[in-house]
């Protein structure tokens, strides 16, 4: 996994830079840092600030309304038949706008050979994302039920156009939009999130966009909850509905339970147990998710 190695190296090199940026903050016009730990979220497999599988309305980076911040992540999910990898960078502007780029790679290992694609055949895609917070404040608005709401869009481009059409996928590129609402109920130490995603992506787009069963964008619900155990630790669960557009294989909704630990203001480590259901006819893809996020 030399790509994972390179991504980890990039992340480690980023960290001291990030820490340095924060120390320099007072001398600059544009400030960095200032958020409470964990309130930038972790990085989803698609690069947004959020949970692991679904975005939150929180904006990535440690910046407040007066500054800029950012985060880089590496996530690996080891499944019975596949290995998933994502890594990327994201920028947070004034705790208002988030711009992200993430690379996803899906190694089919022995399944690749079984499907005639070749052992270790890897689907890859680039995800470009933008998210904007529109109303509310998840953290400070503790005296109202109004959540923090953000809207966002992703543009995704898959590397394997020929294979995508061979499995019945319509496009090798696609877009999706979403609205997401986050509420932290400090009174009960809970974080609740709901997302509605308008998408036609097959397995997030790793198997293309649209297919022989359905081409249209559909509305998918995604839900997550977190229980705040300390300023550094949150545990919770996520559920992500998915489209089912391909005739050759069922696509299942995704579920996970997670624990995210902010080691300090820069680095957050997340572990999860995920159930990704059936992927390309191989059922019961349950496994371990590990994610390292460094930010400033």
């Amino acid at each position: 996994m030399s790509r994972l190695g390179a991504a980890c190296l990039a992340l480690v090199m980023w960290t001291p830079l990030a820490a340095h940026a924060q120390e320099d903050a007072p001398a600059r016009d544009i400030e960095t840092g200032g958020k409470l730990k964990l309130t930038r979220g972790i990085s989803t497999i698609e690069g947004q600030g959020g949970g692991g599988l679904t975005p939150w309305a929180l904006i990535t980076g440690n910046e407040t309304d007066r500054g800029v911040g950012g985060a880089a992540h590496v996530t690996a999910v080891e499944l019975p038949d596949y290995t998933f990898l994502s890594y990327g960078v994201a920028l947070g502007l004034f705790d208002r706008v988030e711009l992200s780029y993430t690379r996803q790679e899906f190694d089919t290992r022995d399944v690749g050979a079984a499907l005639g694609l070749g052992r270790g055949f890897t689907f890859g895609q680039d995800v470009w994302g933008a998210k904007m917070r529109v109303i509310g404040d998840a953290i400070y608005d503790q005296d109202t039920w109004l959540p923090q709401v953000a809207i966002g869009a992703n543009w995704k481009k898959n590397d394997q156009g020929a294979v995508v059409s061979a499995v019945g996928g319509t496009d090798d590129q696609g877009w999706e939009t979403y609205a997401t609402a986050t509420k932290i109920l400090l009174d009960s130490s809970l974080l609740l999130n709901g997302t509605l995603r308008w998408t036609n992506a097959n397995q997030t787009g790793l198997l293309g966009y649209g297919g022989n069963l359905n081409d249209d964008h559909e509305l998918m619900g995604e839900f997550s909850a977190g229980w705040l155990l300390s300023p550094d630790l949150v545990v919770g669960a996520e559920y992500r509905m998915k489209p089912d557009n391909l005739a050759i294989a069922n696509e299942d909704d995704w579920v996970d339970i997670y624990a995210a630990w902010a080691i300090n203001h820069q680095v957050t480590l997340t572990g999860a147990y995920v159930d990704l259901g059936s992927i390309a006819t191989f059922d019961n893809q349950r496994g371990v998710y590990l994610s390292l996020q460094a930010g400033f």
Partner: peptide, 12 residues
């Protein structure tokens, strides 16, 4: 921590 958060909910 849960009690801390109940005060913070008032201060936030």
């Amino acid at each position: 921590f849960s009690a801390q958060n109940r005060l913070l909910a008032k201060l936030a």
